[in-house]
Design a protein around this nucleic acid. Structure first.
Length: 791
DNA sequence: ACTAATAACATTTTT
DNA sequence: TGTTATTAGT
């Protein structure tokens, strides 16, 4: 304990060592929040708290994993692995499965992601013959999500006139019926959506006091990361669980609350002290990330927000440069300015490409930036867009997994019933749907007993349905005895997915093949780590599914070390840091978004978003805006963002032409601007632009290569390696084809061993290896990370 | 039942 | 503009 306390500053140390009751840790940007959390947990473990008595909740799997790793580094893997540490959703998914009997769900209920939820809502709206424009499925989904986040069930909705009035006002008087039907359909299908995981946890604790007491006693200490992003459902779960021991520590920064549109309630952190009057407040105010001028600029901005917890964030780093603003005539020019600036700074040898990030408000802005980077030869990676697990081919395979585990899963059923095409078309599916809804049973129930439910199909179709059913039943039977990886390969072979994908060589198909390969690889890795870490003999498919259903792309950070600039939305940048940050598109209607200019609260949230963007920068922060921009097909004129006026003019270097359009409005800004000119030192990079012709003045050397240096994190159509169309075996990157019986090999995890047997076909050879310390293992060569050593 | 063509549509998105 | 969803046609 003592040894790591010396690594903390005074306020960090106080926050870490106080464990007598509830505490609120306000952690300013870059103030070492994760450090406090990890040391606190490590300290609790060293004090003798059992790891299983500590509940630590995060918002991303990545955050949980990183924290667990750091704790493992202090107290060892054994203890760290036993912590209840994970996302809200994964932890309570686990608990809900254990307690499923109490809430009327099967123990292996599956998860609908937001796309599944929206699909179901859409079919319900269609089924009710409602107009899809007034009952916009996206809006309905958002509303239902909002209701659930506030713990409104269809039952309690009825007794709430205020809620109904809101929906009447939105011209959706039948919201209640859609909500009810949606809830019933999910129940019937044995599925929960993301919001349900929190809602049903609350229902479980509300209706089963014995269960609540069990977990209250179990969790002696509760920690919550990013508390400013919790919603009401999450707040209440924490409150209930902490009700016995009161040892709850929440960490967060109200100034970085940017997810209210998803139900996060900033009040949770603002009013935490009212909920727990005996609460201790700790403020982490020293920023270790950014220069003083960046911290000051950010402070001056966030100061304009009314609702916030007072804090004095400061930096003792060097003073650094002030924030520089550049204007461009168009979005194209803006992109070129940024690309040229990056090239210039890179060529000065002071920075690598990975020291740069371009942050924007909307994903749509990435395209034009991407183009500029490609033209100038700046290597880049883009985060965002479709996540791996949302890809069609991945969802298709996962749907087979889900349906094998849970026959009732309606969305999974609809997804795979005719994929690959087996002649069960739209009409047949709607007949099944009709039947199922009429008898209030699942789709699977209908095809299990077509005669009993009077399903009207011709004999040919009936046969096809029967075949599908038999195939699925075989899968289900096999999931009991085969490992997740074996099941996965079985399924993609026997369903014909593989054949389908390897039929033609369109570029889209090639990336699909690669994605399926990637999925298989990850399942294999999953099985390996489960075997090693948890000693599970055979990790089953349902175990994999439980984990993968709550996984997102944020967890794939394998490209982290490549020397490329990063492009992402400001939202996606939260928690990250870069030496140089470019915030682009700083215009009215875009940042703040025109969707958020309605209320003061949403403007404050946009301002916090801007605050998050600025505080990502360690050394230099640049802001750009364009005077015209292509938006929704046509070019539109834009004005600089109002937020530029919120930053202390002494800490901002505005472009000359800012006064042309804002001279009258911004006298003070301009006055100080002139002062700045006099006392500002040149930075070494001539980034300033005054007019279009001068843009060329910092045009960097032309790119040496003409081909695309940029890579997207998840290419939709990629020019990457071509997999062998006849086998699914050569994408893993491991070439272990030279391994022979008798060789000595070294495995990343199992250590040194001797190959005693090889079996199976080429491409999927299994090797039996006797490891010196890890025993005998059978390993698939194509995935194994093996090194041959001379024996 | 599948493909091609057209219309409609567009924030942010830790799970 | 660029994507996505529905519709018409084969």
């Amino acid at each position: 304990m003592e040894d790591f306390l010396s690594l903390l500053n005074e306020s960090q140390r106080q926050a870490v060592t106080y464990n007598d009751g509830p505490s609120l840790v306000i952690a300013g940007a870059g103030s070492g929040k994760t450090r406090v959390l990890t040391y606190k947990i490590a300290g609790l473990l060293q004090q003798g708290y059992a790891p299983s008595s500590i509940l630590a909740l995060t918002f991303t799997n990545k955050a949980a994993r990183e924290m667990k790793d750091r704790i493992a580094g202090i107290v060892g893997e054994n203890l760290a692995n036993k912590l209840w540490m994970g996302t809200f959703h994964s932890v309570f998914y686990r608990i809900l499965r254990i307690e499923s009997d109490n809430i009327g769900f099967p123990s292996d209920f599956t998860i609908y992601d937001s796309a599944d939820s929206k699909n179901l809502i859409k079919t319900i709206i269609k089924g009710m013959k409602l107009d899809e424009k007034t009952y916009n499925p996206n809006k309905v989904h958002a509303r239902i999500s909002q209701l659930k986040n506030n713990l409104v069930t269809p039952q309690s909705y009825m007794s709430r006139n205020d809620l109904h009035e809101v929906d009447m006002h939105a011209r959706m008087p039948l919201m209640k019926d859609i909500f009810t039907t949606y809830t019933n359909r999910c129940l019937k299908a044995g599925v929960m959506d993301f919001d349900d995981l929190l809602l049903y946890t609350n229902i479980l604790f509300r209706d089963h006091p014995g269960v609540l007491v069990k977990y209250q006693n179990y969790f002696k200490f509760i920690l919550v990361d990013e508390y400013q992003d919790t919603n009401f459902a999450q707040h209440l779960i924490i409150k209930k669980l902490a009700d016995r021991h009161h040892k709850v520590c929440v960490v967060g920064d109200d100034a970085q609350s940017i997810y209210s549109f998803r139900g996060a309630n900033i009040e949770n952190i603002l009013r935490f002290q009212e909920v727990y009057p005996e609460c201790k407040l700790f403020k982490l105010e020293q920023n270790y990330r950014s220069t003083q001028n960046i911290v000051r600029a950010a402070n001056s901005l966030i100061d304009k927000n009314k609702e916030q917890i007072k804090k004095n964030v400061f930096s003792e780093n060097s003073e650094g440069n002030i924030v520089k603003v550049f204007s461009a005539y168009s979005d194209t020019e803006e992109s070129n300015i940024v690309a040229n600036a990056i090239l210039a700074m890179h060529q000065s040898k002071k920075y690598e490409y990975k020291d740069f990030a371009i942050l924007y408000r909307t994903n749509a802005q990435s395209r034009i930036l991407e183009e500029a980077m490609r033209k100038k030869g700046v290597p880049y990676k883009i985060y965002g867009g479709l996540s791996f697990y949302q890809r069609k081919e991945i969802k298709d395979v996962l749907a087979y997994f889900k349906l094998s585990i849970n026959h009732a899963d309606e969305e999974a059923f609809k997804r795979v019933i005719n994929y690959p095409a087996r002649g069960i078309g739209e009409t047949t599916v709607s007949k099944i749907a009709e039947c199922a809804n009429m008898h209030n049973v699942s789709f699977w129930d209908v095809i299990s007993n077509p005669l009993g439910y009077n399903l009207q199909v011709n004999s040919g179709t009936a046969l096809k349905i029967g075949n599908f059913r038999m195939m699925m039943e075989e899968f289900t039977a096999e999931t009991e005895s085969k490992s997740a990886y074996d099941m996965a390969t079985t399924i993609i072979h026997r369903t014909g997915i593989l054949k389908e994908l390897y039929q033609d060589k369109t570029p889209e198909n090639m990336t699909r093949q690669q994605n399926i390969e990637e999925l298989l690889k990850s399942i294999h890795e999953f099985c390996e780590t489960k075997e090693e870490e948890e000693g599970e003999e055979m990790p089953l498919l349902n175990v994999f599914l439980q984990e993968v259903s709550l996984l997102t792309d944020q967890d794939n950070n394998k490209n982290e070390n490549l020397d490329m600039i990063t492009m992402m939305t400001v939202h996606a940048s939260k928690g990250l840091e870069f030496k140089n940050v470019f915030i682009v598109g700083m215009e009215e209607e875009l940042f703040p978004s025109n969707m958020s200019t309605g209320s003061e609260e949403s403007i404050e949230e946009e301002r916090r978003l801007f605050y998050v963007a600025i505080t990502r920068a360690e050394e230099n922060c640049y802001i750009t805006y364009a005077k015209s921009r292509f938006r929704n097909g046509s070019s539109a004129y834009c004005n600089p963002s109002r937020f530029l006026k919120d930053i202390d003019p002494d800490l901002l270097e505005l472009p000359d032409d800012y006064k042309m359009s804002h001279g009258r409005v911004l006298r003070e800004a301009l006055d100080s601007q002139f002062e700045n000119f006099r006392r500002q030192e040149p930075t070494g990079y001539n980034l300033k632009i005054k007019n279009t012709t001068e843009t060329t003045s910092f045009k960097a050397n032309p790119p040496k290569f003409n081909f695309n240096l940029g890579t997207r994190m998840k290419p939709m159509s990629s020019t990457a390696a071509t997999p062998n169309p006849n086998s699914i075996s050569n994408f893993s990157g491991q070439d272990n084809s030279n391994i022979k019986v008798g060789d000595f090999v070294e495995h990343e995890k199992f250590g040194i061993g001797k190959v005693t047997q090889l079996e199976g076909l080429e491409g999927s050879t299994k090797a039996t290896i006797e490891f010196r310390n890890s025993g005998v293992k059978k390993i698939l060569l194509k995935y194994a990370k093996l090194k041959v050593i001379k024996g």
